[in-house]
Structure formats: C-alpha cells, structure tokens
Amino acid sequence: MSAENTLPDSLTELLRATGAALRIFDMGRRISKLPLERFRRIEDSQLPYPTPFQHQAWLAVLIWNPKQRDENAVWFLRLPLDEQGLVAPAARDDLVKRLIQNVINSRSGQPDEDALKDNPYSFTPEQSRMAAFHALAAREMKAPASPHYERAQAWFKGQLGLDEWPSLAYQGLADVIMRLDQEGNEQALCERLPDMPAAVLETLCPLLEHQQPSGRLHQALLELLHPALTEDNGNRVAALCRALSNGPDELAKQQWVSEVLASKHATQAEVITVIATRCESALLEPRVLSRFLEQLARGEAGQTGFSRILAELMFMPVHRALLLQAFRNPERSEALSQAIGEMFGQTFEAPTSH
C-alpha cells in the first residue's frame, strides 16, 4: 500500500520522477505554449482549460533528456472536460496509471513514445497541425528548422520564381511561418501576399492562425479579405479569417468579423465554422453575436450545424451566458427562434424579463 502511495498522481509528477524535462503546448483551437505552472493547475482541475474543443483538452507534451537534448519524445494527449471546462480527475488518474505501467514495462524505463501504446487518450494531429507543431517545437528548443526551410524562405524572398511553389515542402512553409520574426521572413511574406497563388495562400492560412500577426501583416491580410468578400470563393474567405483570427486587437477583429457576417459568404458552412471556432472572442460583443446567430440559423450547415456549433460555444462559460441572453432577445428572427426551438425542444421559452 505504501509503495502504491508513492506513485506519481499527475503527469507533471510522473515526468519529473523520470528526470525528464518537459514543455507543454495547447493543441486546442490553435497551437500555443502553455506555461508549466498553468498546466499543473489545469491538470489538478483548479483552472479550466482555456480553449476547449469538442469538450476536450488537447495537449502536446514535449519530453527530453536534459543531458541528451536530441533524444526527445512527444505525447499528444486529449482529456475529457466537465461542464465547467475542468479536466475530469478520473480520466487524468486513468491516463497517469496507464503511462506509469507502460513506462515501467518499457525496455528503457523512460517516458518515450511507446508509453502511449494502446492509450485511449492519445491522438495524432492532422498534417497541417503536425507541421506547425514541429516548427514551433524546434524554435522553442532553439533547434534548427527542417531541411525544407531554406527553399521555402528563398521562394518567399523572390529568389525562386513564383511558379516554383509546387516544389515547396509543407514543413518548410510551416518553418517560415513559425519564424516570421527572424531573417526578414515577415517582410518577405507581406511582399509576396498580393501575387501569391491561391493554392499557396489557402495552405498558409491554417499555419498563420497559430501566430499573432503584426500590424503590418494584419493589414496585408485585410487587404486580401475585403475584395474576397465580394468574390465567389468562400474557401478563400474562410482561409483568410483563420489567418487573421489571432490578431490582438479585439475591436479590429469585431469589425472585420462583422464585415464577413454581412457578406454573401456568411451562411457558408466553412466560413461560419471558422468564425465560431477561431474568432470566438469577437462573439463576446453582443451585436456581433446577434448577427452571427442570425446567419447561423439561415446557414448552409442546417439545423445539425446550428446545434453542433452552439453546443461547442456554450461549453465556454462566458459565451454560454451571452448566448442564453441572445436567445431571449424578443427581436430575434423567426428563423432563429425556430432553430433554437429545434435545438432545445419546443419547450425553450425565454422569460421576457428578469
């Protein structure tokens, strides 16, 4: 029993007990560093996970041996959250027990990637996210970029012809985007944007959502978004919304999101989904939220899309409160009233005062 009690009861303790160094990345709505102290509090169910997606916390744990930094492993983990957005303790305990058992059973006795074997809490990121993660992790570890970086950088800087873009590796593009503040990369990107082939732009935008654009890059992207709103390419609009979504100026974000919601693309499933999942902070402004709800109710995603998107937003406490308030707005349209009724059952009748 006493031996049992000495076993680590958290991921942080488990990894510290092996002598490993670690860094944590949030892999939820976008990829970003998660300070270790904050992760400890999230893991202990003291703080809600900041960016819940599909009611789960999505994490990457980068583990390395301080004496041999090139020997590293990555654990991609997802943990269920309760209604307050807190990590479910039973799931965390189950995960830690499985990891301990696998580390004990492994030949090395170290927390390598084999420790995730047959683990129901592990996941594999899609290609674009994996490339972005590797590029960001290399930068954080002060390791060199991938061998594809220099060619991609040369293309952005005009040292290769515009038509040579098919020869660029996706990982190289990710490396450039994750190092925008180095070697003139941001300036090169801004200068390339106006002439950039559509295929490259739509490939870059999901990478840009993990970066906070500078004022100059933000303006360059807006100059592409505005004409796109009057054209017929909804994919381009959705992609540019992703690229702009991590901008720090919330008033500016509310402004361009409102313009997208006033455009003919607002009812397209991909566009409205990007606004809900990447630009959710703009929806904290009640007027933006009201317009969003009206377009969602009329959208191509139908009732299923309406219900799914709102279930995701309502998982965040502040959004939930604002949504419930918006549902009670007596000026809501018949289409929105009907969609709300379908989602909650016809019994959802909002009190008119209180």
Rank of each mutant, 00 (worst) to 15 (best):
L99K: 03
N72P: 02
A88E: 08
F76N: 13
K117W: 00
R129I: 15
A20R: 05
D118F: 03
P89H: 13
P80S: 15
D94A: 11
P111T: 02
V74M: 06
R41F: 04
R78Q: 13
V87Y: 04
R40K: 08
Q68E: 11
A90M: 10
K97T: 06
A88G: 03
L59P: 09
A135Y: 07
A60I: 02
Q68L: 13
R78D: 01
Y121P: 08
Q84K: 05
N119M: 09
A135E: 10
L62G: 09
H134P: 01
T124I: 06
A73L: 06
V61S: 04
L34W: 04
E113G: 04
R98W: 02
A88M: 05
E71I: 07
R69G: 03
A90G: 12
S32V: 08
A21K: 01
A73R: 09
A88L: 10
W64F: 05
K117S: 02
S122D: 05
R40D: 07
P125Q: 09
I104A: 03
Q54P: 10
D112Y: 02
L22T: 12
Q56S: 08
A115Y: 02
P80H: 15
S106Q: 03
S106T: 00
A21W: 00
A20G: 01
A73M: 07
Q54I: 14
D26Q: 08
L99S: 05
P125L: 12
G85T: 05
D70Q: 13
K117A: 04
V103H: 02
I42Y: 07
F133A: 00
L136K: 15
S32H: 14
E126C: 15
Q101D: 06
R23L: 12
G85V: 03
E113R: 07
S45P: 03
P48Q: 00
I104D: 05
Y121C: 10
S108L: 03
G85W: 01
Q46E: 14
S32M: 13
W64H: 04
F53D: 09
P66Q: 00
R78T: 02
M27K: 08
A91R: 12
I42A: 07
